[in-house]
Each structure stands twice: as structure tokens, then as C-alpha cells.
């Protein structure tokens, strides 16, 4: 969803900083991570910032979520998993979780019940800190995989 003069929301996948603007910041002003922002819907921003309830505002539909994930991989050292069935299952999962619980929680990790703690489970997450990424070059759910040299 685009807002005033084409502005829209972006979320830092490392620290969940929210940016409202025409383009995603190259460097996160909060955690200084580079190229870590992903395009998100207004409701996702509102729920993270705690001024919207989970039933308020529109969320992205499946194709829009997939596009944000694809865009997120551009010029990065990782890409989407080529297994379309796997991607479809994960996208359906994150959308179901957003519908039911307010945020795009990872379908392969359960929430703790603590809102702030569970912000780390929003997809895309900060998967480069995970052992899975370090050991096999995949995020925990295998949505994002290391690009081959």
C-alpha cells in the first residue's frame, strides 16, 4: 500500500526499525545494518509500532508478499529457494499468521507469547545470525538460501 506522494513503509529485518518514505534506506539509522530493509504493508508497520490493532488496515496478498521477498533478495548474497512448493507453503504460512496473530511470523518457529521478543520471528528475519545460515547457507525455514558463486 502506498501512502502520501507514493511513500510507503519499510522494515529493517535486523532491528525492526520502521521507515516511511519513497525508498528504503541503504543504512539503518538505528542498528547501522546495510541493505536490511524490506517493503511492508501499512498494518505491519502499525502493529510493530503498536498504534494499530491486528484487525485494522490491509495486509499484502500472496503475490505482493512474494514480490517483496524477491525484491529483498536483489543485489544480495542470497536468493529465494528455487523450490516453488516450499516458497508457496511458507508464504501461505506467514500470511495466515499475519491474519490471525497480526504479524508475519515464521511458519517454522513458534512464538514465545512475548510481543517484543517475537518481533525477531517476523519474516524476513535477521537470519544471518542463525546457525543454519552459517552452517548450510539457509534461513531456518529455507525461504532464503545463499546464492551460489
Amino acid at each position: 500500500m502506498s501512502g502520501l506522494r507514493g511513500k510507503t513503509f519499510y522494515r529493517c529485518t535486523v532491528c525492526n526499525d520502521i521507515h516511511y518514505g519513497n525508498i528504503a534506506p541503504k543504512i539503518c539509522p538505528t542498528c547501522i545494518s546495510k541493505d536490511a530493509y524490506v517493503h511492508i504493508a501499512e498494518r505491519e508497520a502499525g502493529v510493530i509500532l503498536k498504534f494499530l490493532k491486528i484487525e485494522e488496515g490491509k495486509i499484502f496478498i500472496e503475490n505482493e508478499v512474494l514480490k517483496t521477498f524477491e525484491d529483498f533478495t536483489k543485489s544480495k548474497d542470497f536468493t529465494l529457494n528455487p523450490d516453488k512448493e516450499c516458497i508457496e507453503l511458507i508464504v501461505q504460512g506467514v500470511l495466515e499468521h499475519e491474519e490471525q496473530y497480526g504479524l508475519k511470523y515464521c511458519p517454522c518457529r513458534m512464538t514465545s507469547g512475548n510481543f517484543d521478543e517475537d518481533l525477531s520471528l517476523i519474516c524476513p528475519c535477521n537470519f544471518k545470525i542463525q546457525n543454519n545460515w552459517k552452517e548450510i547457507g539457509e534461513c531456518w525455514c529455507s525461504l532464503f538460501i545463499k546464492r551460489k558463486e
Binding site: L89, C108, M110, S142
Partner: peptide, 11 residues
């Protein structure tokens, strides 16, 4: 076995 219905690894 704890599993999630949209988890590809569980499947």
C-alpha cells in the same frame, strides 16, 4: 513431535 502445518521441514 511439535510441528507447524505450514512448515516445509515438518512436512
Amino acid at each position: 513431535m511439535f510441528w507447524g502445518r505450514r512448515c516445509p521441514h515438518c512436512r
